[in-house]
Design a protein around this nucleic acid. Structure first.
Lengths: 195, 195
DNA sequence: TTTTAACTTGAACAGTCGCTCAAAATCAAA
DNA sequence: TTTGATTTTGAGCGACTGTTCAAGTTAAAA
């Protein structure tokens, strides 16, 4: 070994992730990225291969962060549903203003990449499926612990959660609706329990 | 008068709208548009001023089309809710494969334009607010006709509808989930009636 | 101290972008 | 048939895109 990389890969990916999340893949130029991560093109390209490579790593990192966040709320809550409720409130209300977008980066990705054969479209599908599987695990636990009836299967609860959560985040991606967030989130969890 | 325009403005806007809806604003190049609408740059720019101008007109036209579609389903249904149910089924199930995207163009616009001060961001907010107002009218009628209880106000029903509808369309913007569409739509309308 | 492989730099390339405008084509009115 | 305002054409402009790579810098190993 003769020389070490100067940048911390984790930080670079996190900063890039924020920019991509905010502006989307196509509207983010490599020069935007260079400035944001304070690296010259050569370094970026030797580390990530391409703009697409960096986006790819950014999106993967994003989903890891999300799961870590959920785990945090779950470990501080008495119930699975309580943890998820706190997580949703945190995303939709508390961290809305310091977030690049109210809309989930994965949902944005799913919306942006139209061509069925593109790498990034496939990636967004994979990560989305993984997230649904993760949610399904959580709802399996919730059913087993008796928090939920088993009139719906775990995966059906997971699907319902995703539809509600995505719908809510889309709705609150606009100004002057903050006061409706709390009641609508409460309504969402009331519905889940009553399903 | 000495010469007339050769193209039909309505058709051009409709074709452009399909392309913008599929690929998004940033990923659609003016050359893509030129080919799709079969016009040379000079003609496009004299008619619409800019790429942004054409997008603007396309998005406005899209919302008009949506409202027209809903009116059609309403006039063929016995109840407001029945009409909306048929409309949602048509969008999510029947016309999914011939549509540029499962996701509403307006929702895509809202997701794509991040800068709070851009014209297109403002436009998407305006049109979204207009659509919520339109839905509120419909739910007012539904309440007055006794189709719905008045435990929720009309605008609250409208918000609920938008969250569900947007969430569902996002969810079904992926392959191999078609079989879940019908039950989830039924669930959505069951929930509305029980709220 | 010298060597040397790894890393960083940034000028620059080829391609694409949104857009312009002089010239050609068009067609109702004279 | 001639006129002349209007529309269409498409070559091409300057800016910007993603990306490359030769030259410079770094620091562990010899």
């Amino acid at each position: 070994m003769t020389n070490k990389v100067k940048f911390e890969r984790e930080n670079v990916v996190r900063v890039a992730s924020q920019l991509f999340w905010q502006k989307g893949f196509h509207a983010t130029s490599t020069r935007d990225l260079q400035e944001a991560v304070n690296m010259r093109p050569g370094s970026i390209y030797s580390a990530f291969g391409s703009k697409e490579g960096l986006y790819c790593e950014s999106l993967k990192d994003y989903t890891v962060q999300i799961k870590t966040q959920i785990e945090g709320f779950l470990s501080n809550a008495d119930t699975i549903l309580g943890g998820l409720h706190a997580f949703v409130e945190n995303v939709v209300i508390k961290t809305k203003d310091c977030s690049p977008s109210a809309i989930c980066m994965l949902v944005k990705a799913n919306s942006e990449f139209a061509e069925k054969d593109s790498n990034l479209y496939e990636l967004s599908l994979d990560l989305t499926a993984q997230f649904e599987a993760y949610l399904t695990q959580l709802f399996t636990q919730a059913i087993n612990k008796g928090e939920l009836s088993n009139t719906l299967t775990a995966v059906e609860y997971a699907r319902f959660f995703q539809v509600q959560f995505t719908g809510l985040r889309g709705y609150f991606n606009r100004p002057n609706v903050e006061q409706f967030a709390e009641p609508m989130i409460n309504q969402m969890f009331m519905l889940i329990k009553k399903l």
